[in-house]
Design a protein around this nucleic acid. Structure first.
Lengths: 338, 338
DNA sequence: GTGAAAGCGCTAACAT
DNA sequence: ATGTTAGCGCTTTCAC
């Protein structure tokens, strides 16, 4: 007496079992007003018994919408992206959307992957340097709502990002106050719009008369990249090294220690992101609202998806505030941020 | 001369433009052998011009598959889940699947959310304590391939997890060697199968004659939970506190410092996960292959999705190896793990 | 090699 | 309040 796996019940089977038409089943299950409580109950029972769940593709095809949206990021490695995605998922969920994720790193054809994703969703959030402006513009011109996250704006498309320039300036000033004059920036501005913004801000805040700024691009934004870049950095004998993010800064910290350098006495180091590890490493860094970045993108996207063509507003831009978090690594202080 | 947004080209429009039938378009675009190179080219051109992308729902409906799979986790907070999800996405992508993610925390009805997700995918990975065995069994009985991750097995369903018991034992022995006898475990075994396993392993390895083990459940697995639980922990005046994960251990570290206790001299602390922060906090912990957990789940799921009913094999179980990473926080050593 | 037509499982008019 | 029916856009026999 084998128990057959009830592969897929369809609306027809439910209708038959409940003794009604498929239209009624559809209504009953979606709490339409147009069904008597009794029939509704009968249908529910039948659906229950058959373990019926409406086919999503069929529904989407009929309704013309996916009830899902997507987020594309260059890479999920490291706490930064994870936090953003988390904020995104939570908000999207609250708004009734499923979320599809796509990491483009290691893809042979990122643009194609993004386009394929675009076909599965009602709206798309694009993070950082995943695809070119043209690809973004192409997708947006399809009519698909798009929100850009931590990325340079594209005409007519909403953009949310975290502040880089001003906070980089604040960081630079802080470093100058500490007496640091020979400063190295570690990070490749071509890697991401954020890195570019941080470098630009730093550069603008350090007039060449007051300080000397060297750029070391390094090879990536993770711990190993930081370690690996250390020799090149140390060669220029800087007072301070400003790193594009925390992970790379942490790598520098490790390498400096290895090299017998004391931080901050011999070398000041700063990061960006305020990861958990930064706190324990005593790393001066910049805090950015990662969850809120994701959440904002999800909210904006939802708004776009549900706005009628007539009420369509102009593209929005927002820069979320970031702040310097002062700890040991940038120089000796009286009080330190916990 | 307004430029109209080419909202949605359908296969019919492409067919018309190319002067062929929709069947031919379908074939041409999917590289069927049954089309002359010329027609294929003509169709491609038309598709290109119209920016045509096949509707995913329509395709899925016709093909009876989604070309996507899903992963459900309790919460994306903290580096642990993020790493697992990353490993999962990368592998799924390499295997040609899109991935849908779902975080059940904060959902009013996790089971419903999971079922809804199940309707969107060809296979599902369920992590930790997101839904009951019954829900899992229910979904699996539908015929939908399911893989369990970091969770107790369910009959007939594949399971991958990281080792807890043996490594907890090793950790216990290490603590005993350090002379610690009064030990507190911080973490709620009811929170997750992993925590339960870690506590059980520890308990088994600490015979009551040799040591005294106290359980403090605390309230969650993050930094704040660790800080908050500190008073209760310190009340029992333990030599060592074994924490369910790194974040909570880091919280204890902070609180201990606040209370004027030296680690490890006055109190030994250990964590679990080997987060980046653990390294910088000098925290003794357990390393687990998070990426590989996700990757394995994705691979297994793919295999299940593509296996024919005839070749269906028995449910697989695998426990990936974990290892103790010795650092400062568990007691004074000659050499420390970097 | 290509076309016609039958679904795939649902929603939403339109009828009753 | 419920049933009938026409799509939604694609894949895939089955003819030609």
């Amino acid at each position: 007496m084998a128990m057959k796996a009830l592969s897929k019940a369809t609306i027809y089977q439910v209708a038959q079992l409940a003794g009604v038409s498929i239209a009624t089943v559809s209504r009953a299950l979606r709490d339409s007003e147009l069904v008597t409580p009794e029939t509704r109950e009968r249908v529910r029972a039948a659906a229950q018994e058959l373990q019926f769940t409406p086919s999503r593709p069929a529904r989407s095809l009929a309704e013309g919408r996916h009830a899902a949206n997507g987020i594309v990021f260059p890479d999920l490695v490291g706490p930064y992206y994870a936090e953003v995605v988390l904020g995104y998922e939570a908000t999207a969920a609250a708004l009734g959307s499923s979320v599809l994720i796509l990491a483009t790193n290691g893809r042979r054809d990122p643009a194609a992957a993004v386009r394929e994703l675009a076909g599965r969703v009602d709206g798309l959030t694009v993070m950082g340097r995943t695809v070119d402006d043209e690809v973004v513009a192409g997708i947006a011109s399809t009519g698909l709502p798009v929100v850009l996250l931590a990325r340079d704006p594209v005409d007519g498309v909403d953009t949310v990002r975290a502040g880089n320039t001003n906070t980089a300036r604040a960081l630079a000033e802080h470093l100058l106050e500490h007496g640091h004059r020979t400063i190295t920036f570690l990070g490749d501005p071509d890697d991401s719009p954020d890195v570019a913004g941080r470098y630009a801000g730093l550069k603008a805040a350090l007039p060449s008369k007051k300080a000397r700024l060297t750029l070391v691009r390094g090879n990536g934004l993770d711990l190993d990249a930081g370690c690996a870049a250390a020799p090149e950095i140390l060669a220029s004998e800087p007072d301070a090294v400003v790193c594009a993010n925390d992970e790379v800064a942490l790598g520098v910290l490790l390498a400096a220690e290895e090299a017998g350098l004391r931080v901050p006495e011999d070398l000041a180091v700063t990061g960006w992101d305020d990861l958990l590890a930064a706190r324990f490493a005593g790393l001066t860094t910049v805090r950015q609202p990662m969850r809120e970045l994701g959440a904002t993108a999800a909210r904006w996207l939802d708004k776009r998806i549900n706005e009628s063509p007539s009420e369509r507003t102009a593209a929005r831009r927002r820069i979320l505030a970031t702040e310097v978090v002062t700890r040991r690594s940038c120089g000796v202080h009286e009080e330190v941020h916990p």
